[in-house]
Amino acid sequence: MSLSERLHPGINLAGTDPESHEAAEEVLFGFWIFLMSDLVLFAVLFATYAAMSVQGIAEGPRPAEVFDLTAAFVETLLLLFSSFAFGFAMLEMKYRENRRGVLLWLLLTGVLGAAFVGMELHDYYVMITQHAAPPQASGFLSAYYLLTGTHALHVSSGLVWMAIMAVQVAVVGFSTPVKLRLMRLALFWHMLDVVWIGIFTFVYLFGVAS
């Protein structure tokens, strides 16, 4: 059996573990439906932000006055490399079922993700203390904290999920349920990176460029 028999988007186990591969089809399709409904949540927050960042400035600062593009760029790189590391964790799981290898890649993924959340919290701290830009200052800032905060919460819950999966990999090993959970976490993690593309473009870059 080769990779050509792929049943769903994401890593497919066709060549290495046919049994789990069969079981994965409907589980992963269901998870895609969840991901898309989550995307709807983000889209509505984006729409609110788009309206507020132009018409909801009130007496508060403008986007270009409070955003730090360098920090946004570093955060983008952290999340991108984190997503990339998770891809390699999945390959390690698929082809070698090597616990140590998977755990090391997961650790790298988690550290990069945690650094991302830490930098975002630092951004908030700088904005609130140095730019007088707390969430209650204007509609623009409320929408900004709501959108980026929701994303940061998603990343944080992904980190918790990742820690739980690391324990399961260490204790249970690569049973079919554990593999399927890791595959769903991978999709979740990659999808959060896609949402971040929207945030760094439509929030940070648009805010500074316009």
């Binding site: 028999e5 049943l7 999709l187």
Partner: peptide, 17 residues
């Protein structure tokens, strides 16, 4: 990202997704 990280392409088996 969708193509290289999430592995979505135009294969027939992926049409549903």
């Amino acid at each position: 990202h969708l193509r290289y990280f999430l592995h979505i392409d135009l294969q027939r088996s992926h049409r549903d997704d």
